[in-house]
Computed example of a mutant assay.
Amino acid sequence: MTSMDWSDGENDAIVADYFAMLADDEAGRPYNKAEHNRGLQQRIGRQRSSIEFKHQNISAVLKGLGESWIAGYKPAFNFQGSLTDAVVRWLATHPAWLSPTTRLPPGIVSVVREAPTLWIGPPPTHSNMPPPEELDQMQAIAREFDVAERDARNRALGRAGEERVVAHERATLASAGRDDLADRVRWVSDQDGDGAGYDIASFEPDGRARLIEVKTTNGWERTPFHISQRELDVADSLSDAWCLVRLWSFAREPRAFELRPPLQAHVSLMATSYQAQFH
């Protein structure tokens, strides 16, 4: 280890400090970054600039892990693998962080009642792709720690995302003067269970069917996601009506984009499991 490398103890200390700030940041509580920096200087003996840059490295690790980060610490890449290990260690000892109701958008019930619309932007494309070295590092972290599977297992996150899209659909139809259709939007996965190949049955303002599969993450727009064979089959067979709404940055400021079939035009589909039958 060179004199510039950070030890596991130093990494653990700065990661814990970062998450303390992030919790305050997401909750809207005031905190002082300079004060946190001074405290770390005293505890681990690193210079202010070194600590500042390491905070940016932590933002980059969290981006790769599909988690939100402190906006004031712009992600900086080419970090040590030991820093990723430190972030994963912290998450392992604080499992509630990955799926706590306290990190879902505040007042989700009132959100549904007031039914505001979502920010819907363009999907990721080659034209807005980050630099190759950045993308490679983000994708490597996502693969190693199976971020897509983690989000898929997070039932609270998935349910909250679907609820948010139901509210968006009803508000959009109501603003188009189609209260009759807004009243008929159906939360299929909640009322009938999974298995339909979509989560929400909604409508276009002209009355055409709109079948929506919702995928939610707290991470950035390029965080990978899982999609089932059933969902792919329904997307192919009902391609005129089916769409995927990808919600991202959900814990902080929910944003979304839509993908229409064929999904292969937008994403690379990779088989991650197989069904085994005996001969």
Score class of each variant (00 low, 15 high):
60 A>C: 03
275 Q>R: 12
143 R>G: 02
95 P>S: 11
85 D>P: 08
5 D>H: 15
63 K>T: 14
39 G>I: 09
184 R>C: 01
208 R>M: 01
30 P>Q: 14
91 L>W: 02
20 A>P: 06
150 R>H: 04
72 G>F: 04
177 G>P: 13
15 V>Y: 07
77 F>W: 06
160 A>T: 05
15 V>F: 05
110 S>K: 15
49 S>T: 02
36 H>M: 14
263 L>V: 09
212 I>Q: 00
4 M>A: 07
99 S>K: 09
179 D>E: 08
104 L>N: 09
131 P>T: 06
22 L>C: 03
81 G>S: 04
25 D>N: 11
89 R>N: 10
195 G>Q: 13
114 E>M: 13
209 A>F: 08
63 K>Y: 15
101 T>E: 11
30 P>H: 11
110 S>T: 14
199 D>Y: 05
209 A>N: 05
230 R>F: 06
180 D>K: 02
80 Q>S: 07
120 I>F: 11
137 Q>T: 00
146 D>F: 13
126 H>W: 12
134 E>G: 10
230 R>C: 13
29 R>Q: 13
90 W>N: 09
275 Q>V: 14
132 P>E: 09
193 G>D: 08
191 Q>N: 11
65 L>Y: 01
269 L>D: 13
169 E>G: 01
252 R>A: 09
242 W>L: 08
73 Y>G: 06
163 E>Y: 10
243 C>V: 13
157 L>N: 01
20 A>K: 08
176 A>H: 12
104 L>H: 10
185 V>S: 03
6 W>M: 00
70 I>P: 03
134 E>M: 14
243 C>W: 12
185 V>G: 05
66 G>C: 02
263 L>M: 05
58 I>M: 13
214 V>G: 09
241 A>H: 09
193 G>Y: 05
261 P>C: 06
82 S>L: 05
35 E>S: 14
5 D>W: 02
120 I>T: 15
216 T>I: 07
143 R>D: 09
144 E>W: 04
91 L>E: 08
69 W>H: 15
128 N>E: 12
57 N>I: 12
22 L>K: 07
240 D>I: 11
234 V>H: 00
170 R>C: 03
150 R>S: 11
128 N>P: 07
162 E>P: 02
152 A>F: 14
168 H>S: 05
209 A>C: 03
219 G>M: 07
238 L>C: 13
261 P>H: 05
79 F>R: 06
213 E>S: 15
258 E>F: 11
192 D>P: 00
